[in-house]
Every structure is written in C-alpha cells, then in structure tokens.
C-alpha cells in the first residue's frame, strides 16, 4: 500500500515539477503514437472500406487475416520491423533503427489492422439503402462510397480510439525498435519498464499515472470532436 500511495504522490509531484526529461518523453510518446495513428488511419480507413464494399476473390481470407492481425503481439510487430531495419536486414541502409521513425513504422503495423478491420466492420453494417439513397439522388459511385464511409463515422471513430489506446499503451514494439535511448527514443511506456527494472516502483507508477492522464485527455478531445460532428445523433435513453 505504501508503494502505491508513494507512487500516486510521486506521480503528481512529477507532473507539477515539469521535469524536462519527462516532458520530452511525454512529447515523444505523443509524437510517435499520434503519427502512427494518423498514418494507420489514412491507409486503414480506405483499405477497410474497400474490403467491406468490393467483392473479389480472396476477400474473406484477407478480412480474416486482418481480424487476426488485430491481435498482433506488439513484440512480434517490433521484431518484424527490427529485422527489416537492422543492418543485416533489407532496409538496413536507411539507418532507421533506434529512431522515432522506426517506432512509428512498428506502431503503424500494429494500428493498421485494427483501423482497417474495425472500419470494414463499421462499413459492412451499413444497409444497402444508404448506397441506394445516394445514387438515386444522383451521386456518382465514388460519392456514394464516400457517403457510406461518412455514415459509418461512429464506427470509424471507435476504430481510431481503440487503435490509439493500443498504441499509446504499447511497450513491446517501441522498446524493440526504438531501443529506449534516453533523450532520443525513450517514451512513457519504456520509461515505466526501465524504472521498474531499476526498482524505482513509485516513480514507475508516477509515470504510469501521467500515461493514463494523457490517454484520458486525448480521449476527451476525441469525444468532444465526436460530439460536435454528431450533435444531431440520437442517444439511447434507458428509462
């Protein structure tokens, strides 16, 4: 109990102290996970919509693979990226290993199946009538598909928040390809691992609190944005 109390105390002290090192670590966490989320979104949303709407040979298989990869262990994603970026790997010449770029690549690998799979599901739950309504109002095929995606917003935003939660809390991949180098690739989660290994349990707990707060704030912002775009959305009232 002492350690937990101490950790809570230390966490708030850490926030109040505006520790330079910690600010850098927090900003890098944000930078890596948000960049990965944006990239995963940019390729994952169209890919998911495509999988949901286009009928082609092997579509079911690809969907199933995507669903499976939604549970890709971060360490495995990290290992794969590591092997590619390593000096002995095919992309070794780019010298990307142990840089934030490598961490973003690994996290994109983790986030993409999640965004893609959940987007596909969200779009697939849309009814034929959405498409019919758009084309009967004179929409081109492209316009109608964009409308379908627009109408799936709730599901897609859920996909993005789920992915963000996974990415910001993930340690295996960023540890592996980032290397947890102080001042260069150390992020909140790898800091927690390190502090724990060094036996600084309360400091680790403190950083954990910062991580949770950060996640909370981001989710709050997303929810706010979501509310703004859905001001007309009816909520279910349970009486």
């Amino acid at each position: 109990m002492d350690v937990i109390w101490q950790g809570l105390k230390e966490g708030f002290m850490l926030i109040l102290s505006l520790d330079q090192e910690l600010i850098r670590v927090t900003l890098l966490s944000l930078h890596v996970s948000l960049s990965a989320l944006v990239i995963a979104g940019i390729i994952g949303i169209p890919a998911g919509a495509f999988l949901a709407l286009k009928n082609f040979y092997g579509r079911k298989l690809i969907l199933n693979i995507t669903y499976t990869l939604m549970g890709l262990p971060p360490v495995l994603a990290g290992l794969i990226v590591f092997l590619f970026l390593s000096n002995r790997g095919p992309l070794g010449d780019f010298q990307l290993l142990f840089t934030p770029t490598a961490m973003i690549i690994a996290q994109v690998l983790l986030g993409f199946p999640l965004v893609c799979g959940l987007t596909a599901r969200a779009v697939m739950t849309q009814q034929q009538e959405v498409y019919d309504t758009s084309v009967m109002l004179g929409a081109t095929r492209t316009q109608a598909v964009l409308t379908l995606i627009r109408e799936s917003r709730i599901g897609i935003i859920a996909a993005l928040t789920t992915a963000l939660g996974r990415l910001i809390a993930e340690v295996g991949a960023v540890m592996m390809v980032g290397g947890n180098i102080q001042g260069k690739t150390r992020v909140l989660t790898t800091s927690i691992v390190l502090e724990t290994r060094m036996g600084h349990d309360s400091r680790a707990l403190g950083i954990g609190i910062i991580l949770l707060l950060l996640a909370f704030i981001i989710m709050l912002i997303i929810l706010k944005l979501e509310k703004r775009s859905f001001k007309d959305d009816s909520t279910i009232q349970i009486i």
């Binding site: 009814q127 009538e129 959405v130 019919d132 309504t133 084309v135 009967m136 109002l137 004179g138 081109t140 095929r141 409308t147 627009r150 109408e151 917003r153 859905f230 007309d232 959305d233």
Partner: peptide, 21 residues
C-alpha cells in the same frame, strides 16, 4: 446509369436520412 438516374428520384416507405441536418 449516372446520366439516367440523375433524371429520376425515389422515396421509399421509410426513407433513409443521412446523418446531419
């Protein structure tokens, strides 16, 4: 299809309303 559909319109028994105003 596009050219011809743009000269038609349809209303169904429970019309789908797009999310929005």
């Amino acid at each position: 299809l596009l050219r011809l559909r743009r000269q038609m319109a349809m209303v169904t028994q429970s019309s789908y309303m797009f999310e929005g105003s």
